[in-house]
């Protein structure tokens, strides 16, 4: 039972981290129609900027703000210099251009910060663990879960309670009309891209204490985010929320219980080897199951 609780919390922590990345990805795709492969690079840029600022100031909060701002700024640059010219092109062109951005970003951070990997320590006031229903659980991981919940609340309020949110929703389906009503669509697009970039940067900073800050660190998260938005339904933020949590939990539970299941049939060392491979596959298994039941994902638009 303690194991189940701990793995559920671990799954939620991984899921909420993924949510911060995939909600931006799906927002950009839903509104701008852009498949942004460089989204993982924004995650990486956030982490690098934060690691640099933390090393200079020793203050985690300042580093967090700098990382988010750095990623948002990088996002604005990407949108105005490259992405803007891709809105009318087909998806293959977008894939090629944004893949180019990925390669440039990976080389770029190495040129600026060198090839030696960096680390970002969690702040001292979030170190250690607390007792939760008899389980000692790391405070920092709980903080990530809370930050994830806060992200969901803020995004929900932004989209459902503000004028900008209304524009974003309208832009999903009626871009021309939005422009005709006098909304500055160009600026709105840049803003949405920057918001997605900031979210990715935020995720990059908060997950860095459990990662090595190095070139290409976001690639793995990007692939998982694609799985999330396929599960959740392309373009749907609600889908991204559920998709992320399903993925996080499927991974945590799969990694734990599948090896146990295999262990019933084979000796421990084979079970450990097979089980851990099966565990890693559990997220893709979850994707297959969801797509079999709902081919457009959980909240995918039924007909465009």
């Amino acid at each position: 039972m303690e194991l189940f609780l701990e793995q559920t919390l671990n799954g939620l922590q991984a899921g909420f981290t993924l949510l911060m990345i995939s909600s931006g990805l799906t927002l950009i795709f839903g509104m701008l129609g852009i498949l942004n492969l460089a989204h993982g690079s924004l995650f990486m840029i956030g982490a690098f900027v934060a690691a640099d600022v933390a090393a200079r100031t020793g203050n985690f909060l300042v580093a967090l703000l700098a990382g988010v701002a750095g990623a948002a700024l990088a996002g604005i640059l990407m949108e105005t210099l490259v992405i803007r010219f891709l809105y009318q092109r087909d998806h293959l062109d977008q894939v090629l251009a944004t893949l180019g951005l990925v390669l440039m970003a990976n080389q770029g951070v190495q040129m600026v910060w060198g090839i030696a990997p960096r680390t970002l320590a969690r702040p001292s006031w979030l170190e250690g663990s607390v007792s939760l229903f008899g389980l000692q659980y790391p405070i920092y991981r709980l903080a990530i879960i809370l930050a994830g919940i806060a992200t969901v609340v803020v995004l929900w309020a932004l989209i459902n309670r503000t004028k900008v949110g209304m524009w974003i929703l309208a832009g999903n389906t009626h871009r021309e009309l939005l422009g005709a009503l006098g909304v500055n669509v160009t600026l709105l697009y840049t803003g949405v891209f920057a918001l997605g970039a900031a979210l990715a940067g935020f995720a990059g900073v908060v997950s860095s204490p459990y990662l090595t800050v190095e070139a290409g660190m976001g690639d793995n998260f990007l692939i998982l985010s694609f799985v999330v938005i396929v599960i959740g339904g392309i373009g749907s933020i609600k889908g991204a929320v559920y998709g992320s949590l399903i993925l996080g939990l499927a991974d945590a539970w799969g990694q734990t219980y599948l090896p146990m299941l295999v262990g019933e049939f084979t000796d421990p060392s084979t079970a450990a080897a097979i089980g851990s491979s099966l565990g890693s596959a559990s997220i893709y298994l979850a994707m297959v199951v969801v797509l079999l039941v709902r081919p457009r994902g959980l909240y995918g638009a039924p007909s465009g």
Partner: peptide
């Protein structure tokens, strides 16, 4: 959406 899915698959493979 279909084009998007094709693009997405291509993207995942490339990546």
């Amino acid at each position: 959406w279909r084009a998007a899915l094709v693009g997405l698959t291509a993207a995942a493979l490339v990546l």
